[in-house]
Design a protein around this nucleic acid. Sequence first.
RNA 1: GCGGAAGUGGCGGAAUUGGUAGACGCGCUGGACUUAGGAUCCAGUGGAGCAAUCCGUGGGGGUUCGAGUCCCCCCUUUCGCACCA
Length: 821
Amino acid sequence: MDNSATRDDPLSPAVIAYNPQAIEQKWQRTWQERGTNHTDLQRAQRPFYALMMFPYPSAEGLHVGNLFAFTGNDIYGRFQRLMGHNVFEPLGYDAFGIHSENYALKVGKHPMDLIPKNIDNFQRQLESAGLMVDWRASLRTTDPVYYKWTQWLFLQLLKQGLAYKKTAAVNWCPSCKTVLANEQVVSGGFCERCKTEVEQRLLEQWFFRISDYAPRLLANLDHIDWSETTKTAQRNWIGRSEGAELEFRTRKVKGDECTIRVFTTRPDTIYGATYMVLAPEHPLVDALTTSKEKKKVDAYRDKTTKQDLVARKTSTDKTGAFTGSYAVNPATEKEIPIWISDYVLMEYGTGAIMGVPGHDQRDFDFASKFDLPIVRVVCGEREDANSPLHEAFTECEAGTLVNSGMFDGYEVEPAKKAIVDFLAKSGSAKPVVNYRLHDWCISRQRYWGPPIPIIYCDDCGTVPVPEKDLPVVLPFIEDFKPDDSGVSPLARHEEWYRVACPKCGKTGRRETDVSDTFLDSAWYFLRYPSVNHDDVPFEKNVTKKWLPVTSYIGGNEHAVLHLLYSRFITMVLHDAGHLDFEEPFTRFRAHGHIIREGAKMSKTQGNIVNPDEYIESWGADAFRTYLMFLGPYEQGGDFRDASISGTRRFLDRLFASVQSMSSEGSADQSVMRKLHQTIRKVSEDIPRLSYNTAVAAMMEYINILRKGERTPHRDEVVPLITLVAPFAPHLAEELWEQTGGNGSVFDSAWPAFDPMLAKEDTIELVVQVNGKLRGKILVVPDIDESAAVVAALADPTVARFVGGTPRKVVFVPGRLLNIVV
RNA sequence: GCGGAAGUGGCGGAAUUGGUAGACGCGCUGGACUUAGGAUCCAGUGGAGCAAUCCGUGGGGGUUCGAGUCCCCCCUUUCGCACCA
């Protein structure tokens, strides 16, 4: 669809048509030649680090969703530059990971060949979109000079005691044939990537102690400037709950006494604990199981470990087995039976609970099924100790304790504290805060990632690769296909993993697992300003100048993955003395997502849009402006082909206005007033990412500018070039040049807003009678109430509705007059 | 079940603190220019009514001079998390 041809009206040769393709090519070339997008990292006086989440370079190329995200950041960055900042807007590639590897497998190519091609394609697309990216500071996580430092990072965590190896039940994706972090298991048990049901497997894996940082990760959320939605997601994921750890003594178990520790948020209900449940994997199960019950317990454990996660999590039907042993309730001193059941999770709390069927629905279901006693220990307003329970009573407010010995009559909240205090005297209770956040499993049994820099030696054990030997280069191997063995394809390559132990020199064996892609991306923002420093991960002075990141924009799908990991890694580096800040992103805003035909645009939905064709037919500037106009940036919006013509028309009119404007005479005062109102509006909207309304304001202005057949004056038009520049950078540069501007428009100043020029000399005062609109009167802005009433009553409609004497008058100066009769 | 976001014309969406509901754009209708128009320009466009006017922001209550906006109840959509003790 070539619109430009028809725009060349042969009858009016004086009109030069707006040809975006030519203009965009010209300016992309000029920017490159002039280094317009380069940031002087050393000399910058007012550094502004405008970061966007880097893309994974897929073979399909950049899609509209990426461009929507990047454009939003670009506009913000360009605006800040026009406001006088030295803006640094880098962009790199998150090129390691299962994504790329799976695709390579699918098309039968090697990721080492595929990735550079994909990146070339991305680079071409990104450049055609006109982003203000300083490509000299680009990076790719697959580059050994980059992942050398990813490996270094692992060693730092190891040094700090924050990396450890353990055998654990981990999430295994049978399709991707690798372990997944908890954050990568979605919808209660499916692989985030391929949606396959996740299995539980016992494997030896490397973990990072992110859970040690839970209190800080949570507390800092209160004072960072982030989208609330993101902070809420992180708070929920970290999952703080306040409660108590209680100890239950058991009767002699094979000659010894032992104690079972439970975590509860409801210590007040301890008098109602009529049984205990351990997770099937709980270490005490064997010791507690009597010989009589052994068969049943073993059979149950066998069944639950084989069962996949989904069946286990979706079933509400309770199952379990009795161990044959009993514990003593420390409050009632009664013996209560000890059971095992899969509704108790080993990963949370202590892996054991006290069963309070009266006041927890899950316990109620379990007790009902196995005929365990159900005792009421809290009652509501119209109940007493004997009121029957048909389901668990879980209300806390307005609950009073009953059947609870000396605590009868206590309200729930004070009872929690009183009971813990009381039990603490005998050492069987202490207040505890529990977090849902688990340690971060970073091992991946795959090929396409940075090898974990560890060497195992029969004599020296687990030996870190010395920093001087980094990087541990990922070798090129043909057979990188993962298998079911639970080890990486690298484990099939003895020539690679057989190496001398760095400590003793005897033959050792490399760790063959690679690290999680999210480790690559947990620190990339530290690297950009330092990409030219080969000897350090991030150079001290440049880091001091540019970090933490001034503004970060990205998708909320990373709220509990990338964004949490990045905060953790930054804290670790801070604690180890490598950084002098502990929060990486001063300001973060989550952008929305583009919807098409009612569905989120994604590859699986098959409704992705390739931006190339749109840029080609409408121009990058019109397309960028359209993307920003289609809905509120932080909420996303509906992508509809038909609407792009509107933003293109807007740019056409701007172009035409510059061609036809006149320098003679003087600017129209009311147009200038509107101009300054527009400057104010756009200047306010861009910082709060309200791009759609900023574009609307500029459209409104250009409609006024061209109203009727008038020839716009130069002074009315030129400032608009700068206002539109963040959205349509190529066109703005062209018009800037045409109107005699020096250098790049982006090195000029944002138009100054003059409140005096924006001020209206008359306003429309809304007149209501009994709150209903009955008229509008033109008055001076600072009119007082009595004058306004007089003017209003002069309006026949108003006078008719008012009739007699007003009972009351509400006057909002400059806005509205409401006459109540 | 828990938590978040949202519900406004034919459509995408506007509406700082409660103060003109529907900005801006698409689409649609009519007109101008034209050999032609899927280009451009002009006018109109929430619904009903000739009109004065009335009705309108998912539904129902409430507070207020005044409610899309605040409070209570309900419905719907959507996105996270999910046996978290």
